[in-house]
Computed example of a mutant assay.
Amino acid sequence: MEVTSTETVPGRDVAESLGIVRGNTVRSRNVGSDFAQGLKNIVGGELKGYTKLLGDSRDEAVERMLAEAEETGADAVVNLRFETGSVAQNSVEMLAYGTAVRLE
């Protein structure tokens, strides 16, 4: 299945819009990781534990969005977007959403 952050798939025409599809996941941070990241915050630099957490969350949210798109019979998802938010202390939600379409 093709996925794009643009309104169309390059070189293809959209035959039908099937509606919004989405996938999300909520992940909690590890207490040990929080401590290590706190120390890193003192000296500066990339917080690799958080980078991995968000990357894994993004991948899972996209997989779930694509599964929903497949259920609708879509060939592609256009206008892919991501949102993140704090759900509870020490947890983050990653949401992937876009428009499922059938291509000509």
Rank of each mutant, 00 (worst) to 15 (best):
Q89P: 07
L47Y: 03
S17H: 14
V92L: 14
V101K: 11
A88E: 15
A15S: 15
V101M: 13
E83P: 03
N30D: 14
M94N: 02
L18D: 02
A36S: 08
D56V: 10
R58A: 10
N24C: 00
R29T: 12
A15R: 15
E2A: 06
E63K: 11
K40L: 06
L39A: 07
I42L: 12
V78D: 01
T8S: 10
E60Y: 04
A67G: 03
L95N: 07
R64K: 15
S5C: 02
N79V: 05
G19V: 01
R58V: 05
R81L: 05
L80H: 06
Y97M: 12
V77A: 03
E68K: 15
T4I: 02
F35R: 14
R27S: 08
V14Y: 06
S57K: 05
A69Y: 03
A15Y: 06
R22E: 07
E68M: 06
S86E: 15
E7T: 09
F35H: 04
N90G: 02
L47R: 15
A61L: 01
F82Q: 07
S33F: 00
G44W: 04
R58H: 00
L18P: 01
T72I: 02
A61H: 03
S86I: 14
Y50T: 11
D56W: 04
S5H: 08
V26E: 09
D13Q: 13
L95S: 10
R29F: 08
L53C: 04
S17Q: 14
D75T: 02
L66G: 03
A69R: 06
E93P: 02
E71M: 13
M1V: 14
E104I: 11
G32D: 14
V62F: 08
G49E: 10
T25A: 06
D56H: 07
M1G: 11
I42P: 00
E16C: 08
V21M: 09
A88F: 10
L18Q: 02
E93D: 01
G49Q: 09
L53I: 05
V77Y: 13
V21E: 05
M1A: 10
E70R: 15
E83T: 12
A69V: 07
T72V: 01
N41V: 00
S33K: 10
R64Q: 08
L54A: 03
G44I: 03
E60W: 02
E63C: 06
E63G: 08
A69I: 13
E68R: 15
R64S: 00
V3G: 02
